[in-house]
Design a protein around this nucleic acid. Structure first.
Lengths: 252, 252
DNA sequence: CGAAAATTTGAAGCGTGTCAATGGGCGTGG
DNA sequence: CCACGCCCATTGACACGCTTCAAATTTTCG
């Protein structure tokens, strides 16, 4: 359990410190956060629409989905989250949940009380702005989804989604050269892309036939990144993964 | 021009202070922000994808759209913004724009330098968290759009959108009992909902035939809010317009 | 008043949804 | 060890919503 707590700290430092290098004060504040780690089976909805959570979570292992349901019970997945993400960080400032948070595969989740997050944010504007920035990248993912689901047809939509998943896995060291694990059923991908599993199946076969990807047994191989990203009109810049730009430092 | 500057301050105080009442310090910091006000004609794209703006803006009058374009030139509108909104607040923390920002109708926009926003955020964690919260409500709008465009068919999608526009106009005093001005062409609404103008036209007539709305000459009358919001599966809670809850104060 | 933009209408085509059935992979339990 | 059941992937036929293309009409605005 101590180990899992260290994992949380390491992941968070990696994520937040990538953009703005932290000083000693920020590192100590981060290390002071008390995490509660929990292992959960697949398909567990542990935060519900309407809830007012008192914690935010950090994914250590696995995959989470944020989802809303129609009155007919159809699921729209709003986003898929990978280790290192804090998918309900927004509940810190906007207490009322407008969607569910559920595991996709068996996952290890670390929880931290909102009160503790507020404490470190108040103590360090730099840390606060880092967390703020994280939630803004989350919004950028949402915008990519609106664009993808609104303007691309099935094949391109799937290509776009796989491009995003690949880069986000790679950014946290969960993808090797051209391949990564992604245990999503076609039904679930349909719920992400606003399509039925039949359409996903056809689109998947089309991508395979074009030799752009290989996807089986929960593993994806990207065979032709250039063609895949072109087909999906995918621009990785919105993920804001590698901002080496120091221009933020300007204050006058 | 001085008057317009006061308008910006008043709008911002109204928006940010609605959730957490500010003290003297916060009011003085807000009043110290130097705004540059500009009037712009309709359809002017004044921030572009790829830009790294040095200012954020506040809408004083008019309507703005955030949009991305496909390689074929099709426009997907990501969100529509009303007076009081700060649609490119995110550029403060994530400099690289992933979409355009354009006027829909002739609009009056107030600009404030990022450096000044950072100054007041560093001076007051309360102000910072208020702005953070604004950007999170923005993300909630995005999620509503993903749900709406992914799961609802044309009529319901339009109903959902009109519900959102009505509440957001009402929240800033731009709607009277059951009616508000909304000068959006059907083509533009199509770009919001991921549909063609032909579909929008059919859906609009259907809503009129059901006597749910009346929409002509840039004015919308909501004739039957209950039926309209039910049809659109619209839940106004995600707008987070009236959080009277004081539970945020807890820190232990 | 005239030109441009927006709304309206109709017909035909295509992408996706729906319905239904088959087969494969895998964990559970006999 | 095999049988069973469940979940998932696959396939085909058909229906439907939306798109596309085209043209007429109304509204807006300089």
């Amino acid at each position: 359990m101590i180990l899992a707590n260290d994992d949380a700290l390491r992941l968070l430092q990696l994520r937040l410190g990538a953009h703005k290098p932290f000083g000693v004060a920020e590192r100590e504040l981060l290390a002071s956060l008390p995490w509660r780690v929990e292992d959960m089976p697949a398909r567990r909805s542990f935060v519900r629409e309407g809830d007012k959570p008192k914690h935010s979570c950090l994914i250590l292992q696995g995959l989470l989905a944020r989802a809303r349901y129609t009155v007919e019970g159809q699921r729209q997945i709003l986003s898929i989250h990978v280790p290192g993400d804090m998918p309900d960080l927004q509940s810190l400032q906007v207490p009322h949940m407008d969607h569910d948070l559920e595991t996709v595969v068996p996952s290890r989740i670390a929880f931290v009380p909102h009160a503790e997050l507020r404490r470190v944010c108040d103590a360090s504007p730099l840390l606060a702005s880092s967390l703020w920035r994280e939630s803004l990248i989350d919004a950028a993912l949402h915008r990519a989804a609106i664009f993808r689901n609104g303007q691309l047809e099935a094949e391109a939509r799937l290509a776009h989604f796989l491009c995003e998943m690949y880069l986000r896995h790679k950014a946290v060291g969960l993808a090797d050269d051209g391949g990564f694990d992604l245990a999503l059923s076609q039904q679930l991908i349909g719920d992400v892309l606003g399509l039925t599993l039949v359409s996903i199946n056809k689109a998947m076969q089309a991508l395979r036939a074009r030799e752009l990807i290989r996807m089986e047994k929960g593993h994806v191989d990207v065979l032709n990144w250039n063609s895949l990203s072109r087909l999906g009109q995918f621009d990785g810049a919105f993920l804001h993964l590698e901002e080496k730009d120091a221009s933020l430092a300007a204050t006058g």
